[in-house]
Amino acid sequence: MRRTRTRIVAGVACAGVAVLALAAAGARVNTSKSIPLGLYWASSAPVDKGVYILFCPPQRSVFDDARDRGYIGAGFCPGGYGYMMKRVVATRDDTVAVADDGVRVNGELLAHSAPIRTDRSGRALPRYRSGRYKLGESELLPMSDASATSFDARYFGPIERAQIRSVLRPLITW
């Protein structure tokens, strides 16, 4: 009995070390609805439209509320925020507009981008307000392409490139 318990503890410890080693090497697991579920690899590839990114949210009150309400996790980013994963849908010189029917990039309406007025608990959601906005040199727009209920740029607006920690390459998704 004691020998079996020791083997179980040793096996769990080895699995834990393996997971930590993979994370240190660049493996990232996404379990949120923001991007497809799965295993991703962090890289230093260039940030451009269409790539998935891992970023630290900027310190703004909208992210304080998001963390307090459970839209984003607590973590090691400044402000005590957890990392976020999204797809880059707009970059420098792209024109962005957020309206009742959704987010438009250069006039094209993005799928799953209509802002929702309230969360599941009936609390009003924030809304990034812009008529038409041209992204600056260091700005980009992170959005979900996988979920209409994701907490993304339609609620908080563009972020700065300095917030990005890595580009994520999908390894296995479902």
Results as ranks from 00 to 15, higher is better:
R154W: 09
D152P: 02
G136P: 06
V19Y: 13
P46Y: 03
F76S: 13
T95Y: 04
A99G: 14
P142D: 14
G79A: 05
K134W: 04
A66M: 09
A111N: 08
A97C: 11
I53D: 00
R154H: 07
V9N: 10
D145S: 07
R165M: 12
R127K: 10
V51I: 05
M1S: 07
M85P: 00
A13Y: 08
V9L: 15
F151T: 00
A15P: 00
K33V: 04
L22Y: 04
W174H: 13
L168S: 03
D100V: 11
I8S: 05
A66Y: 15
P158Y: 04
S147H: 11
V51Q: 02
R129P: 00
R60T: 03
K134N: 03
T31S: 09
D145Y: 13
D152I: 01
F156K: 04
Q163F: 02
V103C: 06
D94Q: 09
K134G: 06
G70M: 07
D145R: 09
L54G: 03
G80L: 02
R28E: 10
R154P: 09
V47F: 09
A18L: 15
D93A: 12
A15W: 15
R132L: 12
G79C: 06
I172M: 12
I8D: 08
A90S: 01
V9Y: 15
A10C: 09
G131T: 14
R67G: 05
G136T: 01
K134M: 09
P126H: 10
A148E: 14
S150Q: 04
R92H: 10
S43I: 12
V167S: 13
C14V: 15
V17T: 06
R2H: 04
C77L: 03
D100I: 01
P115T: 08
G82W: 04
I35P: 00
A153M: 04
P57N: 06
A21Q: 05
S34M: 04
L171N: 03
S121L: 11
A45I: 00
P158M: 03
C56K: 00
P78K: 12
A13L: 15
A18M: 14
V103N: 03
V19N: 05
R117T: 06
L109T: 05
G82K: 04
A124M: 07
R154Q: 13
T149M: 15
A24L: 11
K33E: 12
A15Q: 09
E108D: 14
G11A: 10
